[in-house]
């Protein structure tokens, strides 16, 4: 009996001494930076705000930050400054480059720096703009939906600043009408709980260059999947090459919503690549083609 009393006492002592303290921490307000540089276009607008507690209603105007000093610097290969671009506040939380004539150069590195008069945070981030590419393929006027003749996109090969280029494909409908929805998306709107607006700009998600065929001339061939077509009629098909900052943000945001190998209820932070705060300073290069998707057994 004595051994059982001893063992029980040891068990209680062990539990009491071994109780691990891993406490829930408190909400902390963070500054949020959002800016996307697009190759060949003017310098991006910058959006500054703060986070709010998770249980509160999010209204941008109430969390927008004013009186910030923003400078975007174009850097050379060795990280030295080539040019500085200053910003002015447009509305609460929205800032625009004063120089709207200078265009974002593909393949270049840019650094953003944000400081406040009335806050101590200093934010900085860098992005390397993807190389500009072109869509080389001859696009037909129309394609019959889910036919053997599938839209093919041939892209010029470009050097990647990371291991490989990362692309996103979008279809932007030019005829947004519920009667024009393709069957799968129509079912989602009519019988499901999706809003039609969700599919006006229908995205493929991030796709690595490693998925594509590389031709002998090193150009990249992609067959555009039918799942990307939400509407019949005229569509703009936009091919976008994405920098690593934006890819990190988009991928981690999808992960946070669920799926992957994480168990339900395990929610990580997004990957931000911003010093002094959170958010994204990303960049893209794009090209666009126009075509029509017609219903099967319908004359084009």
């Amino acid at each position: 009996m004595r051994i059982h009393v001893t063992i029980s006492a040891l068990l209680v002592l062990f539990i009491m001494s071994a109780c691990d303290v891993y406490e829930q921490d408190e909400y902390q307000e963070l500054v949020v930076l959002e800016a996307y540089a697009i190759a060949g276009r003017p310098l991006p607008d910058v959006r500054l705000s703060t986070t709010i507690p998770a249980t509160e209603e999010y209204i941008f105007s109430e969390v927008a930050l004013s009186d910030a000093t923003i400078i975007i610097t174009q850097l050379d290969g060795s990280g030295q400054s080539l040019a500085d671009f200053t910003y002015s506040q447009q509305t609460n939380g929205i800032y625009r480059a004063i120089d709207q004539s200078t265009l974002v150069e593909p393949g270049n590195r840019y650094r953003i720096n944000v400081q406040f008069e009335n806050r101590q945070e200093v934010l900085s981030a860098e992005t390397v703009v993807p190389q500009q590419f072109q869509i080389l393929s001859d696009v037909e006027d129309s394609y019959v939906y889910q036919s053997e003749n599938q839209l093919e996109i041939l892209l010029t090969a470009t050097e990647s600043n990371a291991e490989q280029n990362i692309y996103v494909f979008n279809t932007l409908t030019q005829e947004p009408n519920i009667d024009n929805l393709t069957p799968f998306y129509r079912d989602a709107v009519v019988n499901g709980d999706s809003d039609i607006e969700e599919f006006f700009n229908n995205s493929s998600g991030l796709i690595n260059e490693g998925n594509f065929e590389i031709n002998d001339d090193q150009n990249i061939l992609l067959r555009f999947p039918w799942i990307g077509v939400a509407f019949y009629g005229e569509n703009a098909v936009v091919t976008t090459s994405v920098d690593s900052n934006l890819a990190d943000l988009a991928l981690s945001e999808e992960l946070q919503l669920g799926g992957s190998t994480l168990p339900p209820g395990e929610i990580p932070n997004l990957i931000y690549n911003v010093e002094g705060g959170i958010g994204v300073f990303g960049s893209i290069a794009t090209d666009t083609l126009l075509t029509r998707f017609v219903r099967p057994n319908t004359e084009s």
Binding site: D25, Q28, A35, R47, S49, P53
Partner: peptide, 11 residues
């Protein structure tokens, strides 16, 4: 703990 939005993602 907190939340925010990114309305400007270009797709």
């Amino acid at each position: 703990l907190g939340r925010t939005e990114f309305p400007g993602v270009p797709w």
